[in-house]
């Protein structure tokens, strides 16, 4: 799946480079909670165990995000089992934003399947490459690419529609009766 060659890993440097990103990743997915630092530590611990066992890691950053995703899903299942309610869609929709383009984009992205949203988030928030996203999600790189393209095409289409409608309305309102 990944053609990157395994390379020696400097855990200290990796922690300086990725620790903040992983903390951001967890806090964005679960909200600000106490256990974020523990989860970040767990990611690095699992990576260290893997390295100590003599297994190579092609892309440590992608591997760390993969562990982070796994831990995050486990955490989510535990929360669901203890009947913690998820953030309802209505609550998201009540957040007021003056820019209708952003609101429309938010609506489109919220309507995407979870995996597609994850791909967009990993790309545009955490700046992971397609190959790193593929490793993180355990998908072929072609799938990552096509799903991202599909999401962007849908977004572009909806935003263009919205802008066309908006400009038509403004023309109608400004034209003399």
């Amino acid at each position: 799946m990944n053609d990157l060659a395994a390379q020696p890993v400097d855990l200290d440097a990796l922690f300086r480079e990725c620790g903040k990103d992983l903390r951001l990743y967890f806090s964005r997915r679960h909200g600000e909670m106490e256990g974020v630092s523990d989860l970040v530590q767990e990611c690095f611990l699992q990576l260290a165990r893997r390295l100590r066992a003599g297994h190579g890691v092609a892309s440590p950053r992608a591997y760390l995000f993969g562990i982070a995703r796994h831990l995050s899903l486990t955490q989510l299942r535990r929360r669901a089992a203890t009947a913690s309610p998820p953030l309802p869609e209505d609550e998201i929709a009540t957040l007021a934003d003056p820019d209708p383009r952003l609101l429309m984009a938010r609506e489109v992205i919220a309507s995407l399947p979870t995996l597609q949203r994850e791909i967009l988030d990993l790309r545009f928030t955490h700046d992971l490459s397609y190959a790193e996203i593929a490793t993180t999600l355990g998908l072929p790189i072609g799938t990552v690419r096509s799903r991202l393209h599909h999401a962007m095409a849908l977004l572009r289409h909806r935003l263009e529609q919205e802008e066309d409608t908006g400009s038509a309305v403004s023309q109608n309102s400004s034209s003399p009766a």
């Binding site: 964005r28 989510l76 299942r77 998820p86 952003l102 992205i109």
Partner: peptide
């Protein structure tokens, strides 16, 4: 726009349970 949306609405990054 996508970057701004994800920055402004972090709940979009949360997977559905």
């Amino acid at each position: 726009t996508v970057r701004m949306v994800f920055a402004r609405f972090p709940e979009l990054a949360r997977p559905r349970p």
